[in-house]
Design a binder for these strands. Structure first.
Lengths: 181, 181
DNA sequence: AGAAATATGTCAACATGGCTGACATAATTT
DNA sequence: AAATTATGTCAGCCATGTTGACATATTTCT
């Protein structure tokens, strides 16, 4: 890094664009901060829509995972979201009362309450997913052909080792569950 | 993707790994969900440490950006975090009272309160950044040689168009600010 | 010089969404 | 019959976001 730099663009690039330039033990500032900024904007699109419905992020997460995995058990949802049943109960009750989610008795074990979105619930869930998809599509459009795979590989690798397997299984299982609608 | 698949791993991959298999208008479920799970785990490492100090995520964010950009003005920090001055005030006051951050009068404009981390503050900020860096390093280690650049490009593209320029400038500027220590 | 604008801080009140602890009910398993 | 499991609910606490109003010091504008 003893190069003499002339253009502002080159200076900017040199400051952070080359990961090899990072000193041993120096934090990876660019990805740490980009994760913060990217996530901040990623969740902001749904937030604006949810506000009009009187819902918050917590409702979005519940609606999303129920939509993606129809028949999900309450216990599984709790584990996925890593929140307590009291926290879930608060938002789930609202979603049920307002007709976005229904609960059915489990066919094998009648203690289970299987969760399903109503048509109204699916509509909202898909609208929110559409907003996030639009952002992702815009992002990928400006990148190379392998950008989707690269992003998926990076994000999957960022998940806890103990959770990764389950997360990937969840995604794959949900794809199968939703496909034949 | 008409291949006949035998192994469970390949089957799993086929369920969601090929973006070309996504129907037109179908949400990009994998990245939507991986962003959720990756971010959830990404912030959990610092959370555990912060708890011992009686701090939360809000303190972390403030400490992080002050550490990264010594002499930051309060107004700039507010814009970066996109929170109100009242929300910032609450956590900033604690960080100042407990000796992690100091405020100095601006040399040119004495209304400004320039923010700096103390040695104690820097130590904590670097510890937290180290945890996040360890996770990122582990993630990148299992991927190809361009994984860092690919991740950066994707995350930067996910940021709002209006914010992206500023975010990248912030990262580059902060790198310069911290380099000659 | 005086007025207006700016940067920051602070008080009070409220909303969201986490948490713990305690307890209730119904169904299943032992 | 007893123990365990799945779920729900009440009450209260905490962290962190919000709005609105107002105070102070400083700078800028006229």
């Amino acid at each position: 890094m003893a190069d003499i730099i002339f253009s502002p663009a080159a200076e900017r690039a040199a400051a952070s664009a080359d990961p090899e330039s990072r000193a041993e033990g120096e934090p990876i500032w660019d990805l740490i901060e980009l994760l913060f900024f990217a996530y901040r904007d990623f969740v902001s699109d749904p937030d604006h829509v949810l506000e009009k419905f009187g819902f918050g992020r917590a409702h979005h997460r519940v609606l999303h995972f129920v939509n993606r995995n129809p028949g999900l058990k309450v216990a599984d949802l709790l584990e996925t979201l890593r929140i307590t049943k009291q926290s879930l109960g608060r938002v789930l009750k609202q979603l049920v009362d307002e007709g976005y989610v229904v609960q059915k008795e489990g066919p094998d074990d009648r203690r289970h309450r299987l969760l399903f979105v109503t048509p109204k619930g699916e509509q909202l869930a898909m609208k929110l997913a559409g907003l996030q998809t639009a952002r992702i599509t815009r992002a990928l459009a400006g990148l190379g052909p392998n950008a989707h795979e690269a992003a998926r590989a990076f994000l999957a690798a960022m998940v806890d080792d103990e959770s990764r397997e389950g997360v990937l299984r969840f995604i794959a299982r949900a794809d199968r569950a939703r496909r034949p609608r």
